Amino acid sequence: MPSPRGFVVQSLLALWLFERFGLSLSQAGVFFFWSGVLSALSFPVAAWLSRRIGLINTMVFTHIPSSFALMLAALAPTLPLALFFLLVRAALSQMDVPTRSSYVMAVVTEAERAAAASFTSVPRSLAASASPVLAGALFAGSFRAWPLLICGALKIVYDLLLLMQFRRLKPPEEC
Rank of each mutant, 00 (worst) to 15 (best):
V37W: 01
T78F: 12
R52C: 07
G136T: 12
M1V: 06
R144C: 00
G54T: 08
M59D: 07
L79W: 08
L79H: 08
E19R: 15
Q27K: 09
L86V: 09
D96L: 02
F166G: 01
V60C: 10
R51G: 13
F84G: 09
S35M: 11
A69G: 10
A135M: 02
L49P: 09
Q165S: 15
L75I: 03
E19L: 12
L12M: 14
L38E: 02
C175K: 11
M95C: 04
A106G: 12
A47P: 00
I150F: 15
A90C: 06
G36C: 05
I53R: 01
L81D: 05
C175N: 10
L87M: 12
P4Q: 14
D159P: 06
S11N: 07
L25I: 03
P44Q: 02
F43R: 11
V133G: 03
P44G: 02
A153I: 03
R168Y: 08
P77E: 13
D96H: 12
F7H: 10
R167N: 12
M105A: 15
L72M: 14
V108H: 01
A137E: 01
F31H: 10
L75H: 05
F68P: 04
A46C: 08
L163W: 15
G136R: 12
S142L: 12
D159T: 08
R89Q: 15
R89E: 14
V157Q: 09
L162H: 03
A74G: 15
S42T: 00
F166W: 15
G54K: 10
P65E: 01
R5H: 07
L81R: 01
L75D: 01
L87P: 08
L154Y: 03
A130K: 00
L41I: 14
S39W: 04
G136V: 05
A130Y: 05
A46F: 01
V8K: 11
A106D: 12
R51T: 07
L17K: 06
R144T: 07
H63Y: 06
L162N: 06
R20H: 04
L41C: 13
G141V: 11
M164Q: 15
G54S: 12
W16T: 00
A90G: 13
S93L: 06
V108L: 06
F7A: 09
A28D: 05
N57G: 09
A90V: 01
F143Y: 12
Q27W: 01
R20A: 14
S101G: 11
P2Q: 04
E19K: 14
L41K: 01
G36V: 05
G22W: 05
L72K: 07
L55V: 08
L154F: 13
F119P: 00
L25C: 00
L86H: 06
F7I: 10
P98L: 10
C151M: 10
C175W: 09
L17C: 07
A76F: 03
A127Q: 06
F32I: 02
W16L: 09
A145C: 06
S11Q: 10
V107Y: 03
S129L: 11
G6P: 07
F33Q: 08
A128N: 08
R168S: 13
L81V: 14
S42E: 02
P172T: 04
Q94R: 04
